[in-house]
């Protein structure tokens, strides 16, 4: 058992390293192919016109214009793998510090959305699957299909208009109130600012989880063992408690951890709409501003999160399902 455990860990570490290398190469390639001129984007056309040749050369060196890409990549990679993520060109701070702050903001939002969409999605999916074809199922499915075909940023704007502009009950953006000193910001302020973005992320997250849970639940309800349970006089509630929940929780957990990637991706758009200073927004500004070290770091950290989510999903599945836990061949 322990040797196979070691093997699994080793395999996953190798996989992770390969993933980081592949992702970094892809991100770097895209970045060098980007048509954005870093000087024009960050300094501005007018300012550039009034600068001397030496000043422009200095700036070009700062933004890395004209350097051979391979050399640039290797220099970055050498630093990165020795633990130095470099200095953000936009924020003029260590990338690690920038990310720590942004990730902190985003985490708050993403964890809220992840937990909320996971629990609600599971409940809705289970209810719909148990009552296939009836009113509850139709309503839940209708909601999920509508939401999953609606872009997240559009929902974000809709919520913003309703709650931020018309009802004025929630702030329209940012993560803290405007014009308040950092020391004066309360935890409640932060929560209030995170509500709309988190709800937006949840709304879109729910539909995916609910639809998948529903599918799985329908399979279970059509299984022979549920038929037999019915023949043994088990009520709908007993069937759910004894068989439905037990069989659906494994796949639902897997899905939930795999859904981390969607929450991550969704947060980029949603943070943009709400001007929420999180990782997603930082990624957008790093991309548009040619901030290579920051963008690379964010990309890799996101990849690691998604990888970690999937890894946990796999491990959990083995823990939950006795057929895998007790070492049967894959079913």
């Amino acid at each position: 058992m322990s040797s196979s455990m070691g093997k699994t860990i080793g395999k996953n570490i190798i996989r992770m390293i390969l993933l980081v290398i592949a992702v970094s190469i892809a991100a770097f390639t895209l970045m060098t192919l980007s048509p954005i001129d870093p000087l024009q984007a960050n300094v501005g056309q007018a300012a550039l016109g009034s600068m001397s040749q030496e000043q422009i050369a200095k700036l070009e060196e700062y933004w890395g214009v004209g350097q051979p890409p391979l050399q640039r990549y290797l220099a970055w990679a050498k630093d990165f793998f020795t633990g130095d993520m470099g200095v953000s060109l936009l924020y003029r701070q260590e990338v690690s510090k920038v990310i720590a702050v942004k990730l902190g903001n985003s985490m708050f939002l993403m964890v809220m959305a992840w937990v909320f969409s996971g629990i609600l999605g599971f409940v809705l999916g289970a209810v719909a699957g148990m009552h296939r074809g009836r009113a509850a199922d139709k309503i839940i499915r209708g909601y999920c299909l509508t939401v999953s075909s609606t872009p997240a940023f559009w929902i974000a704007m809709l919520l913003l208009i309703v709650f931020g502009v018309w009802l004025k009950v929630l702030p329209i953006g940012l993560s803290v109130p405007i014009g308040v000193e950092a020391s004066g910001v309360t935890f409640l302020d932060r929560v209030r600012h995170a509500i709309l973005p988190a709800v937006t992320l949840s709304i879109t997250g729910i539909s995916n989880i609910a639809l998948h849970t529903r599918e799985k639940m329908i399979d279970i309800m059509e299984s022979d063992y549920v038929l037999f349970a019915r023949a043994r006089g088990e009520s709908n509630w007993q069937i759910f408690k004894n068989h439905g929940f037990r069989n659906v929780i494994g796949p639902a957990m897997t899905l939930q951890f795999a859904a981390i990637s969607e929450i991550f991706g969704g947060s980029v758009l949603v943070e943009q709409v709400f001007s929420y200073p999180g990782l997603g927004q930082a990624a957008v500004s790093a991309g548009l501003g040619s901030d290579l070290p920051l963008l690379m770091a964010i990309t890799i950290i996101s990849a690691l999160f998604v990888f970690g989510g999937n890894l946990i999903a796999n491990i959990l599945y083995g823990v939950i399902d006795p057929r895998i836990r007790k070492g049967e061949k894959a079913v």
Binding site: Y225, A231, R232, G233, N242, H243, N247, P322, R323
Partner: peptide
């Protein structure tokens, strides 16, 4: 009302047993 106590069925194959429920619990319906 009667199935599961006065009238019982003995099923045909293993697929009629819940794969994730322990046998003892399953016989006692939890």
């Amino acid at each position: 009302k009667l199935r599961g106590n006065e009238i019982v069925m003995v099923p045909q194959s293993t697929s009629y047993l819940d794969p994730l429920m322990k046998v003892g619990q399953q016989i006692c319906k939890g």
